[in-house]
Simulated scan of single mutants.
Amino acid sequence: MKTLTKLEILRTLRNKKFMFFSVLYPSMIYLLFSTTQDTDADVPGTTLTVQAFLMVSMASFGALTAVLMGQSERIAKEREKGWVRQLRLTALPGRGYVLAKIASAAVVTLPCIVVVFAVAALFKGVRLDAWQWLALTGAIWAGSLVFAALGVAIGYLTSGDAVRPVTMIIYFGLSILGGLWMPSGTFPRWLQDIAEWLPTHAYAAIGQAIEMGRAPGGQDVAILVGYFALFCAAAAWLYRKDTLKA
């Protein structure tokens, strides 16, 4: 398992195009969104300025992009090429494969988060205490592992031809409904009730709580932990049951 984890991390770091896109894309989106908004306005239902709200949202969105989009397509291609079939002939357990994939995804998310924070501080004047910067980085990084596990599951659930459209639907659906692009407080009441149980909503809410100097909500933490366990279990089960031939 350790050998596979190291291999997966090295493969990710060597993919310079993927690393470049994953690290810079969310900061570019942040600059685009924040430039068109009123800097001094507060987000409804919070004490956060638009710039601070968007910083956490776009850092979370960027981490989601890196781990979900890259994971699912890469795994689907590996299945088609027969690489995963060879791994199943070894003693590697399903949980070992899933954890190796999650570890490789975690390598990408950290620089992605740091770059968004740096852009927000340097160009948009976002100011937080030192503990908040550290807590935000750790919370968003740890939360991204939930979606890394989801990416592994999607990669096993779909074929190489279908993986991209399926991933895009899930990716944009979770991003929009979870409140990463706009405050969920602006949604109709019935949609807010649905959004509260989505992993992306809990993911963003934890970061926003830290920005406001509060401890993350227990429900949000429980939701993320529950989804992480669910996605890991599903990914491990699909790995063991996969019968695709090389």
Rank of each mutant, 00 (worst) to 15 (best):
T200C: 01
Q86Y: 15
G179Y: 02
S104I: 00
R11S: 06
S34Y: 06
I169Y: 10
L24H: 10
V50I: 08
P26K: 08
L10I: 10
V225D: 02
G173Y: 14
Y171P: 04
M212P: 01
K81Q: 11
S60H: 07
F117I: 02
D193T: 03
G226D: 06
A209D: 14
A235W: 06
M168L: 13
L180D: 09
D193S: 13
R11P: 00
T5K: 00
V43D: 05
T65C: 08
K101Y: 11
M212S: 08
V225N: 00
G45V: 02
W141H: 14
G138I: 01
E8F: 15
G138P: 11
I29N: 06
V119K: 14
V146N: 00
D38F: 02
M1I: 04
Y203D: 00
T90Y: 04
P199Q: 02
W237Y: 12
D42N: 12
A222I: 11
R127F: 02
A121P: 04
D220G: 03
M28Y: 09
L177T: 04
G173H: 14
T49W: 01
A118I: 03
M58L: 11
A162W: 12
G143L: 00
G207I: 11
G138K: 11
P26C: 07
K17M: 13
Y30V: 14
T49R: 08
A59I: 06
K81E: 13
G226M: 06
A142E: 10
A142R: 11
R11E: 03
S175M: 10
V98S: 09
P26D: 07
E78C: 00
S57F: 01
W237G: 03
F117Q: 13
A204C: 09
V107P: 03
Q51G: 00
V146I: 06
Y30L: 13
V107C: 01
G96N: 03
A139T: 12
G82T: 08
G138D: 09
L191E: 00
Y203W: 14
F21S: 15
L150P: 04
I102P: 02
L64R: 14
G45I: 02
V221C: 01
E8C: 07
F33W: 05
L110F: 09
G226V: 07
G82Y: 12
F172S: 07
T65S: 12
W141S: 01
V98G: 00
V152T: 13
F231W: 07
A153F: 10
L99G: 00
T167I: 04
K2W: 14
P188C: 06
A121F: 07
V23T: 15
I194H: 10
A236L: 05
I154G: 04
A91Q: 04
A195W: 01
T36E: 02
T36S: 03
A209E: 09
V225T: 02
L180S: 14
V119E: 10
G178Y: 07
V163W: 12
P216T: 11
A118K: 08
